[in-house]
Computed example of a mutant assay.
Amino acid sequence: MLAPERHEQILRSLRRHGRLRVAELVAELGVSAITVRRDLAELDSAGLLRRVHGGAIGTSTAGSGTQGSQLTIGIVVPSAASYYSDVIRGAEAMAGRYGARLVLGVSGYDVAMERERIDKVLGVGVAGLLISTALGDGDADQLDSRLDDIDVPVVLMERAFGFPQVAREYDHVRTDHAYGAMLALRHFAALGHRRIAINLQATVTAHWLRRGIETAASALDIDLFLSPVDLPAAGDDPAALAQLDAFLAECESFGSRAVLVHSDEHGARLVERAMERGLRVPEDLAVIAYNDVTAALAVVPLTAVCPPKFALGETACELLLRKLQSGAAPVQHLSLLPDLNIRTSCGALQPALTNHLTR
């Protein structure tokens, strides 16, 4: 096949799909990857398409805010509910401003399922991919080559993988969860609490929370106790109640009237059980939760660290879209700071409190 014929077929495929990948063109045209890349370079120089990492997009989809654009962005996340629902909404809002659309894949925090979802989303012909992997930064050694095998631009969300776990540097946008932990502990310290108990669930966020806790322990005049008890998010069965009681007993033994709990659901259940045992919240037990998805709906509204979930989705999507527009841009590592939303569960320390933990 001569070059003009290849160019015509490439443009015909581009009009049909909106985005082309080099590997697909190699199979379709029956030529080498070098030949395909040379064809794309020539068509790009002629203004007939826009080259991007791993392939090409149409020039009409590259402009900002073009209505009716064929540009499609993939987004793969561990969950479409709770925390990530706001992240997805933020990415969707930003995509809409650029005239683009999102294609969603959900891994369910399953590594094998994630690979399948990535392949399906890429199979749609997306121009780029937003991804929050099932593996967290603390498990980066298990990452294998799943990111490096993707042949479209990638922006990581809430992940910050780097060498040697990956072959190349990736753009990422993440919440500074270490700062979030320090924000909560600094607030406790400002209220006069000096002995603080902490309960973290086995989540990918815990990796960064521990870093913030370590920093706070050395920077603030406080004593910290990190509990090994696995708190239940719900349930009144004997095993769940025993776990809650065990943590409250740890607080009593440690002399703590302040607890930081990850996440909202666990904090809400802890408050309910503490009140069932006769404790007053916040007078006898002050609670700060982490995530702020359902914290305000607890029986006692929970003071909570609130990651900028919606803004994270917006920022990551805009970063990817700008990269697709420019064709080449410096890799960016962006950190967004969470806020602390003050509610009833964490009030000021009173001069004289009666310790009801033995009730």
Rank of each mutant, 00 (worst) to 15 (best):
L2N: 15
P4Q: 11
E8I: 00
E8L: 02
L14V: 02
L25Y: 06
S32L: 12
A33W: 07
A33G: 15
A33P: 09
T35P: 02
T35H: 09
T35I: 11
S45G: 08
G47R: 04
R50P: 03
G54S: 03
G55I: 06
A56R: 05
S60E: 15
G65L: 09
T66K: 04
I73S: 04
P78H: 06
Y83T: 09
S85Y: 04
A91N: 09
E92L: 05
R97M: 10
R97P: 05
V103H: 05
D110H: 12
R115M: 02
E116C: 04
E116Y: 07
I118K: 10
D119S: 14
K120D: 02
K120Y: 05
L122Y: 05
V126E: 03
G136N: 03
D137E: 11
G138P: 01
Q142E: 15
D149G: 00
V154C: 09
R159P: 06
G162R: 13
E169Y: 00
H172V: 04
V173D: 08
H177L: 15
R186L: 00
I196D: 06
T203Y: 02
A206F: 01
A219N: 07
D223T: 03
L224A: 04
A233P: 01
A234K: 11
P238S: 02
A239Q: 13
A240Q: 08
A242C: 05
L260R: 05
S263D: 15
D264C: 08
E265G: 04
A268I: 11
R277G: 08
G278L: 14
L279D: 05
L279K: 01
D284M: 02
A286S: 12
A289W: 12
Y290E: 12
N291T: 14
V300E: 00
T303M: 06
C306F: 01
P308K: 13
C317I: 08
L321G: 02
L324R: 00
A328H: 02
A329Y: 00
L334R: 10
S335T: 11
P338G: 07
R343P: 00
C346P: 03
C346K: 03
N355M: 08
